[in-house]
Amino acid sequence: MFDEELTLLPSKAVYIEKHKTLIASDIHLGKVGHFRDAGIAIPGGLAEADLITLDDIIKTLDVNELFILGDLFHSGVNYDVRLFDAWREVHHSIDINLVKGNHDIMSDQLYSNFEIRIHKKYFLWNRFLFTHKPLDDNVILNGCDYIFCGHVHPGVRLQGKARQSLSLPCFYFSEKQCILPAFGEFTGKYIIRPNGNDRVYVVAKSEKEYVVLKVDKN
């Protein structure tokens, strides 16, 4: 795409090998802790899983920079933020850019402690625009070629013979923008209705398999 080769990872992130760039969105760290703070106690472990996935990617692929398209943290400071702190210490050499999402409500100071560069609404990189929320389809792209965003946690419903159906999270490429699936586990998904020319890549994950597949309308 626009001279960049993108790899869609089954772990629900995009990798650009040429620049050693990893793009992920909607990790929602601390979602678990958020419930706990609301009187519904849950031990950690689930939040760690997302960080472990991130760990695995970085171990197998060569990653120099990480772009997070919003909602890195689910809510205020809690236990999972400390876990992230520990993770950051291990991976301190990676450059992190974050577009603030609606869930990223912690003080800017905290992000700077983590050495995360934060962007209020968007940032530009190699003629790509990164935002949290998708932009209106009628937007006129000026000074950039394509948009990457998150926020909606897209998924699609698939249909087959004998009344079979599946709903799976997906990478959703439309004319002007790509909406990434939510990286975090336990984040839910929103079923989108693609248009004719859109390209949809579903993430088929079960106990043994983990693949990204392109699906079409017939």
């Binding site: 419903r157 087959g160 079409d216």
Partner: peptide
């Protein structure tokens, strides 16, 4: 539903539902 097929194979047989 009940399936013993690989998810990948099932997805390949299916198509997008345009609601």
């Amino acid at each position: 539903k009940m399936s013993s097929e690989k998810l990948e194979d099932r997805v390949r047989k299916m198509q997008l539902k345009y609601e």
